[in-house]
């Protein structure tokens, strides 16, 4: 167990859960709900830090926020934005089926699961690091995983929670950073996803190392990001932001893109076995995203932690 001295009561609660298999999702105490969280959690949260200390977001231990009933409409609107196929996240929705199917198929092959099952990921613990509005976390929960979605954006998580409640899917959403999960002694995950997030963090190598650190022996990690190539600059920054206006200008900073080699070095350093990158490319003719060998713009990397 990492840093046992930092484990506080919240984490005891998390560890105490029946997390694998048996526990029914509906009875899970962390089931998202629009109703305000019971008081004690908030109080414990405050008590775990010395009075007057300024909290740095990176140091916060991820917790599910409470959604003020008065704010539900606001977050419902935000959730509708996130989940609208024609709204500002339209490119993500176009992109989503290809990567979700890839993750499912990779997990089914890696863990030897039933490919025909409607819920093949049943009983697996999954972390979606940088989950945003939950566009990946929620589908993973629907495929049976005990899905934990973590994002530093408080509003993202609240919108994601409101949406999960609306469609009645059990997702364990928390506001915070990945290193906070390690610090809090969160049990390891069978699947860790870091999708379209590495290019937004300040220290990608550290972030990938942290994600890898949360992966259980025999576990599977999938990372997706943008490559730092001239082509990626032309397509993902100039094309998608300035020409097609798919994304707001300034969404991506080319200099922060991560090359497959950099990702491989960071993940190998964290003890993972890293596979060759899989390219994800957009065909302007069919309007579809397909997987292939061309990793020069968008790509995904699969890495696994050896069993022992």
């Amino acid at each position: 167990m990492l840093l046992p001295d930092r484990i506080n009561s919240i984490n005891q609660r998390a560890i105490g859960h029946e997390l694998h298999g048996g526990a029914s999702l509906t009875s899970h105490p962390r089931r998202t709900t629009c109703v305000s969280k019971p008081e004690p959690v908030a109080r414990r949260n405050k008590r775990s830090y010395p009075m007057g200390k300024t909290l740095v977001r990176d140091e916060t231990i991820p917790e599910a926020p409470s959604v003020d009933p008065a704010e539900i409409d606001k977050f419902r609107t935000m959730a509708a934005d996130w989940w609208s196929p024609t709204g500002k996240f339209a490119p993500l929705h176009k992109f989503n089926p290809a990567r979700l199917t890839f993750i499912r198929d990779t997990a089914v092959a890696h863990f030897g699961l039933d490919a025909e099952s409607r819920r093949p990921l049943e009983g697996l613990r999954l972390l979606d690091a940088g989950c945003g509005g939950g566009l990946v976390t929620e589908p993973m929960a629907r495929l049976g995983a005990h899905a934990v979605g973590v994002d530093a954006g408080d509003k993202n998580i609240k919108a994601a929670m409101v949406h999960a409640d609306q469609v009645q899917v059990d997702v364990d959403y928390r506001v915070g950073a990945v290193e906070g999960l390690i610090a809090s002694g969160e049990p390891k995950f069978d699947i860790v996803l870091a999708l379209e997030v590495v290019e937004h963090v300040s220290d990608p190598a550290q972030f990938l190392g942290d994600c890898a650190g949360l992966l259980a022996p025999g576990g599977l990690m999938v990372m997706a990001t943008l490559n730092r190539t001239p082509k990626a600059f032309a397509l993902a920054v100039v094309g998608a932001e300035h020409v097609l206006r798919w994304l707001p200008v300034g969404t991506h900073e080319w200099s922060k893109f991560v090359t497959p080699d950099e990702a491989r070095i960071a993940l190998t350093g964290a003890g993972l076995a890293v596979q060759a990158p899989v390219g994800v490319s957009f065909s302007p003719f069919t309007g579809k995203w397909t997987l292939g060998r061309d990793a020069s713009v968008n790509y995904m990397i699969v890495a696994t932690r050896p069993k022992n």
């Binding site: 989940w83 609208s84 196929p85 929705h93 989503n96 089926p97 979700l100 199917t101 499912r104 409607r118 929620e138 589908p139 993973m140 929960a141 629907r142 495929l143 469609v167 899917v169």
Partner: peptide, 12 residues
């Protein structure tokens, strides 16, 4: 959509 874990009734 179902294989991807998406909500099969969602507009998206």
């Amino acid at each position: 959509a179902g294989r991807a874990g998406l909500d099969i009734g969602a507009a998206s």
